[in-house]
Design a protein around this nucleic acid. Structure first.
Length: 734
DNA sequence: GACCTGCTGCGGTCTG
């Protein structure tokens, strides 16, 4: 055994011996000295099942083994399920050390909480929301029980970076350090994470005020080999008139059945609806063939028991099991590794594709990714999005970026997070009973995580919070909660900073077609696709949460709609590169590897031909009948910016998969219009946000309490990109 | 046509 090993507590060494492990893993050895030093933050970045948890807990438990008074380790997890997993995993080690471990979240046992409350010691496993509730409701107890706290460890740290919840978490940690008097002598933070992109940027996300140095430990182990295959499917033009043809989804299900039966696999289907439909078809196939069903759905709307049964079945590996799932099985939960991963329909981002791929690759066997993409059969009425085979090409672009460039979307760390900022102001005042303005600014912005917020923003927000009775200022200058602030902070729903999205009902005439989440950009007169048909929005009732539509013509809608604000510039640029070269293959040595099946290749050739015929390489605006289509080959921020500029000037537009359709327009008229924009200047993001109605911009939980100026600034930064749009328009006109 | 995560305290009913 190595000399680092000797530094561990004797009982930890004994526990290791009992485990029968031949040796510590590389990252586990390398973590021992930095963790024991207790004078720096540590980032441990390694793939799933590389032993990150032990890399932290072996030395950390050694360091707190003699401490019996107060919690020594604060472990924070984004999921309750992960807390339960870790509790089980720590059981034997903590027994050996006679150390208390307390799982603390909304569903954990009151008896365990009570015990820890009376005798705080050892390890506390908690969610950010439960920590928030303790800080607000029992700051005195926290202060007492954390006096000898030695480590704060955050699991699945990548899931927090750049999010509202991550912003809250960092703020909580600063507030905790402040409460227990450790601002000038900070508690080391340890982040456990799946492999991250730009590692040098992560320490700033772990401790924005840089008051401790950070050491990074990554596994130098080679990534296992990756096998990729893309299969194309053709959706028959009209199934109803020709019953001999089977739908693309049916064909895909037959293939999944053939490939997965008898093994252990994950099928990612991107939406709950499709997840259910595929799982149902597969279990039908099992029944038809009189074999036991081994295909089960897994997603967020499914009952907890069903999900847990499936997770346990996957983990046991006793029976062959394939889960059809959404991102619920993308990270976190311990299900071990599967033989292969199948992605049905294009992934939403390269980073999620990467995470999913990481789920496969058992014991030195390669990671296997299969991607099944269906495209529509074409007719004269077909949409240009279908003709170009955009979904297929987006998928190919994402695979190339992942495999050739090892690139994926970086987390967006430049958001304002005004909603969470407002939440933290209320939480701090609720925690202390009152607060001075300068204390708030120092704690949340200077020491804490709200680095994008200026003093002007802060003053504007406080003044508005006074107006809407969230807070009030006493004669002494102290801030206390107002009536509305009391109401919010007294409800148990206060502690989470993220919003459970509200859904709008889609109503045509007197008939409800279904519901649509409110976070998409929907305007009156806009055309939307719902239930596979094209609709025109006639009215939006923000109060009743109803969108009124009428059926509209305009050709067959494209099958692939694309989504929101998520596609990155680099993905669309790679798509353009593929179209221009007419080649998607991946070069290995001096060979070009074709990873697409015959039908997929044919579909790609059709798309590439269409691209050439339409002269899209040289002409990004394409006229078809009375309408124009704009191909920016830029990410959704730029597409949104161009769209809102056109809408502002009275054009009727909609965008599908990054292609903007402008009704009743000509190429020359559009170019003239863009010329005018360059002369007048592109408005900044905040000004663009002013064009939208208030309701459309209220995305985050506490957005409704923000002054309009801040709402516009926050939304604008999220949705638009004026600089890149100006560059794109300039390029178009030269 | 995205998707996902989390929170209290108390009163009721059931079980051993």
């Amino acid at each position: 055994m190595t000399e680092e090993y000797q530094l561990l507590d004797k009982r930890v060494q004994k526990w290791l011996f009992n485990q029968g492990w031949p040796d510590l893993r590389e990252i586990q050895k390398r973590a021992i000295i930095p963790i024991l030093a207790c004078d720096r933050d540590v980032l441990i970045s390694a793939s799933t099942a590389a032993g990150k948890t032990e890399a932290f807990f072996l030395p950390a438990c050694s360091a707190i083994a003699e401490e019996k008074d107060g919690f020594g380790i604060l472990y924070i997890s984004p999921l309750k399920a992960l807390i339960n997993d870790q509790y089980r995993r720590l059981e034997s080690l903590s027994e050996m050390l006679d150390m208390q471990v307390t799982p603390w979240h909304g569903d954990s046992l009151q008896s365990k909480k009570k015990k820890a409350r009376n005798n705080p010691s050892g390890i506390l496993l908690i969610t950010p929301e439960s920590l928030e509730s303790l800080l607000v409701r029992e700051p005195g107890w926290i202060k007492q029980s954390f006096t000898s706290l030695k480590y704060i460890v955050i699991d699945e740290f990548h899931a927090f970076i750049g999010t509202e919840r991550g912003q809250q978490l960092l703020s909580l940690l600063t507030r905790l350090e402040h409460l227990i008097g450790r601002i000038s002598n900070p508690i080391p933070r340890v982040a456990l994470s799946a492999t991250l992109g730009k590692l040098e940027k992560v320490p700033l996300s772990l401790r924005p005020n840089k008051s401790l140095p950070c050491e990074t430990i990554t596994s130098s182990q080679h990534q296992s080999t990756i096998k990729v295959q893309v299969k194309g499917y053709l959706e028959p033009i009209d199934i109803t008139t020709d019953e001999t043809r089977i739908s693309a989804e049916q064909q895909i299900c037959h293939e999944i059945f053939r490939l997965c039966r008898g093994g252990s696999h994950l099928v990612f289907a991107n939406s709950r609806g499709r997840t259910e439909s595929i799982a149902a078809k597969l279990s039908d196939l099992c029944e038809q063939q009189v074999v036991p069903n081994e295909f089960f759905p897994h997603h967020g709307s499914l009952a907890k028991e069903l999900r847990e049964d499936l997770e346990a079945r996957l983990q046991k590996e006793a029976l062959p099991t394939t889960a059809i799932c959404t991102m619920t099985l993308e990270l976190g939960i311990d299900i071990g590794k599967v033989s292969s991963v199948i992605q049905v329909t294009a992934p939403h981002s390269v980073s999620s594709l990467r995470q999913r791929l990481g789920r496969s690759g058992r014991r030195n066997s390669p990671s296997i990714l299969r991607m099944f993409i269906a495209e529509n059969g074409l007719s004269e009425k077909s949409n240009i999005v279908d003709g170009l085979r955009l979904e297929l090409v987006q998928s190919l672009a994402m695979i190339r970026l992942l495999i050739i460039d090892n690139w994926f979307e970086p987390a967006d760390t430049k958001q304002m997070h005004f909603s969470t900022f407002l939440h933290q102001i209320l939480a701090v005042i609720a925690q202390w009973g009152s607060s001075r303005v300068d204390q708030l600014y120092s704690l949340l912005c200077e020491q804490g995580s709200f680095k994008e917020i200026s003093i002007q923003h802060f003053k504007q927000l406080l003044s508005h919070m006074g107006t809407v009775q969230l807070i009030q200022q006493l004669n002494s200058g102290e801030l206390v909660l107002g009536i509305e602030g009391e109401r919010l902070t007294n409800s148990y729903t206060f502690y989470a900073v993220f919003k459970t999205p509200e859904e709008f009902r889609i109503v045509a005439g007197s008939k409800t077609l279904g519901t649509l989440p409110v976070d998409s950009l929907i305007l009156k007169d806009q055309h939307i696709i719902f239930g596979g048909r094209r609709w025109k929005v006639t009215d939006i009732d923000d109060e009743k949460k109803v969108i009124y539509v009428t059926s509209t013509k305009g050709g067959k809608p494209p099958k692939f709609n694309g989504s929101g604000m998520s596609i990155h510039d680099r993905v669309r640029q790679e798509m353009l590169r593929i179209y221009c070269s007419g080649d998607y293959r991946i070069e290995v040595g001096n060979q070009k590897i074709d990873f697409v099946d015959k039908i997929g290749s044919q579909l790609f050739q059709e798309g590439a031909y269409f691209f050439k015929e339409a002269n899209l390489e040289n002409q990004p605006i394409y006229q078809s009948g009375k309408h124009c289509y704009i191909f920016s080959w830029m990410g959704d921020k730029v597409v949104n910016t161009i769209t809102i500029l056109l809408i502002k000037s009275g054009h009727v537009c909609s965008n599908f998969a990054g292609v903007i359709e402008v009704q009743n327009a000509s190429v020359d008229a559009l170019k003239d219009y863009f010329m005018g924009i360059i002369i007048d200047g592109v408005p900044d993001e905040t000004e663009l946000a002013e064009i939208l109605s208030l309701q459309q911009k209220m995305i985050e939980k506490y957005d409704e309490y923000l002054p309009e100026g801040l709402l516009n600034a926050g939304y604008g930064r999220k949705a638009f990109d004026s600089k890149a749009t100006k560059e794109w328009i300039s390029g178009l006109l030269t």
